[in-house]
């Protein structure tokens, strides 16, 4: 048991180390997220009251697109240098290693987004009492985004030109997170109850954390054969 956890931990650390070796690339999603979200107020009239109404959707759509950025290349390098073949042959369950890699991706891509979200929220005039709900929603929702992105990347890893296909594949999996994530923030802004959407997001997170590493591992195995 310990050996298995050690292997998963090794994969996790390796991902982080690889990413930190190219810090410019690692910060790309965060920069993209901030730029995208801040473009909206620039496009509106100064102090437009509509901005507050749109803020939940803007924050969430930006997070969704940032999570998609470069997801296509997620497994490419590992396929090319034979890392995945070695994982397949290892004595450790393959889904566990894939899950560890995706968890590292979450830490690299999504965690910075959550940290930056309050600043973005203030810039978009979001009401302060809604920021806590926004953060909680992102905390539950971003694993769904990253893991379903990872599953789509695994499905298309053997297809040469899958760039346009990935948005179609992830859209059905990501849009419930968007609906309930932004819905919770909207509810918080107007003083409605936020428990329902947050519980639903948590359910989605648990389901994707459990099932998607398996599915992604199966898809990768299929592509490698």
């Amino acid at each position: 048991m310990n050996a298995m956890l050690d292997a998963a931990w090794a994969v996790f650390v390796r991902e982080l180390r690889l990413a930190l070796r190219r810090p410019a690339e690692a910060t790309q999603p965060l920069v993209f997220y901030c730029v995208l979200a801040l473009l909206f107020p620039l496009g509106l009239a100064a102090q437009d009251v509509g901005l507050r109404a749109f803020a939940p959707a803007i924050v969430w759509v930006s997070a969704l697109l940032a999570a998609l950025l470069g997801i296509e290349r997620l497994f490419r390098a590992d396929v090319d240098d034979g890392t995945l073949e070695q994982w397949l042959l290892a004595d450790v369950p393959f889904p566990m290693l894939v899950g560890a890699k995706l968890a590292a991706q979450w830490l690299l891509i999504a965690a910075p987004l959550i940290v930056a979200a309050p600043l973005i929220a203030l810039a978009l005039n979001l009401q302060p009492q809604a920021i806590g709900v926004l953060l909680l929603g992102l905390l539950f929702g971003t694993p769904v985004l990253v893991f379903s992105g990872g599953f789509a990347a695994a499905l298309t890893v053997g297809a040469p030109r899958a760039g346009l296909l990935i948005p179609i594949l992830v859209l059905p999996m990501m849009c419930p997170a968007l609906i309930f994530g932004a819905g919770a923030v909207r509810a918080a802004q107007v003083g409605l109850s936020v428990e329902g959407p947050l519980y639903f997001l948590a359910a989605m997170m648990v389901l994707s954390l459990t099932l998607l590493p398996w599915a992604a591992a199966g898809a990768l195995r299929n592509a490698l054969e």
């Binding site: 499905l155 298309t156 297809a159 594949l169 859209l171 849009c175």
Partner: peptide, 17 residues
Amino acid sequence: LVLLFLYLGVIGLNQAY
């Protein structure tokens, strides 16, 4: 509508390989 996108995903994926 999400179901329709799932179908389109399957069709697209089949053509990508």
